[in-house]
């Protein structure tokens, strides 16, 4: 059921990423998402980056509406539906967390729940450049090690985080990998982990409309990301021809990854 909430705080996490917090009383679990509506603009699926106390979303400015969300201020009103979808299994074990860019947003609350329950955590984060590395300081006290990678080499390893993961996963023993980020990155993480027999859980994203499993906008193979996901086993995704290859625009046309993001609205001012 939709409710209107007031933004209680706004934190600029990175140059392109903002966290908005709001009060809510519906139970939420790490991995789940809400449909976040900016009245007068669009409504987008947003993974919760904070699931307890004041809920939070951490949003990267990508298109017109997400840019609008990052400009919201304390006191602004937002519409919220959900939380929807499944969740990460936070049972205690040793998890390798692999976050690409703003994908780390959904992984951070799962990491906190894991460690609180007695699990162990190793972290690998990637971003285009050092200042865009998200939640490194939030995760550092939880993890035995935090490995960083940047495309421009400004911080940590100079290159893709997938290189770091490929090395880590053969040197250390992990019970599972959690990953969220660009789909091509997740696909490479899945390939590296499956070679050494480590199961992977990926949080995936698709264009979404209803979020209640009927409109088919977020169809991915025989699944609906809104109800069957957004967290899927890597072994399941590997068998889908769309994974890391294509997504659907608002009309339902398949587009290869890398083409311009779909827009349904003119840019908001």
């Amino acid at each position: 059921m939709r409710r209107i909430r007031t933004v209680t705080s706004r934190v600029q996490e990175t140059p392109s990423t903002v966290t908005l917090r709001f009060f809510d009383d519906l139970p939420a679990a790490p991995g789940q998402f809400v449909m976040l509506w900016v009245p007068g603009d669009d409504e987008l699926p947003m993974s919760l980056s904070f699931c307890e106390g004041e809920r939070g979303v951490t949003v990267k400015s990508m298109g017109a509406t997400s840019a609008h969300i990052t400009r919201l201020q304390e006191g602004d009103k937002i519409g919220v539906r959900g939380p929807y979808g499944n969740q990460f299994d936070v049972a205690p074990r040793h998890i390798l967390l692999v976050g690409g860019g703003s994908g780390t947003a959904v992984l951070a609350p799962a990491a906190e729940a894991l460690v609180r329950g007695g699990g162990e955590l190793t972290v690998a984060l990637g971003a285009t450049t050092g200042p865009e590395l998200l939640f490194a300081e939030r995760l550092r006290p939880l993890a035995d090690a935090v490995h960083l990678a940047t495309d421009d080499g400004s911080e940590g390893y100079h290159g893709f985080v997938t290189d770091v993961v490929t090395r880590l996963i053969t040197m250390q023993s992990f019970d599972a990998v959690w990953t969220c980020g660009p789909e091509v990155m997740m696909s490479k993480v899945e390939a590296a982990a499956s070679r050494v027999g480590v199961p992977v859980w990926c949080s995936v994203e698709r264009h979404m409309k209803c979020a209640v499993g009927i409109c088919d906008a977020c169809a991915l193979g025989p699944f609906h990301v809104c109800q069957d996901g957004p967290v899927f086993p890597g072994a399941t995704l590997r068998r889908l021809e769309e994974f890391a290859h294509s997504h659907r625009d608002p009309s339902g046309r398949k587009l290869p990854f890398g083409s311009p993001p779909p827009t349904t609205l003119p840019p908001s001012s």
């Binding site: 059921m1 939709r2 449909m35 509506w37 603009d41 669009d42 409504e43 987008l44 519409g79 539906r81 409309k209 209803c210 979020a211 209640v212 009927i214 409109c215 906008a217 625009d249 608002p250 009309s251 339902g252 046309r253 779909p262 349904t264 609205l265």
Partner: peptide, 29 residues
Amino acid sequence: EPRDGYPNPTIEEYGSWGLLNAMGLPNPG
């Protein structure tokens, strides 16, 4: 022709008794 349909919100939920929608006939053509 391909048609995006209306921007969200396109749905309002009424729990067990109903669902309101204005998708706007999205389809790929």
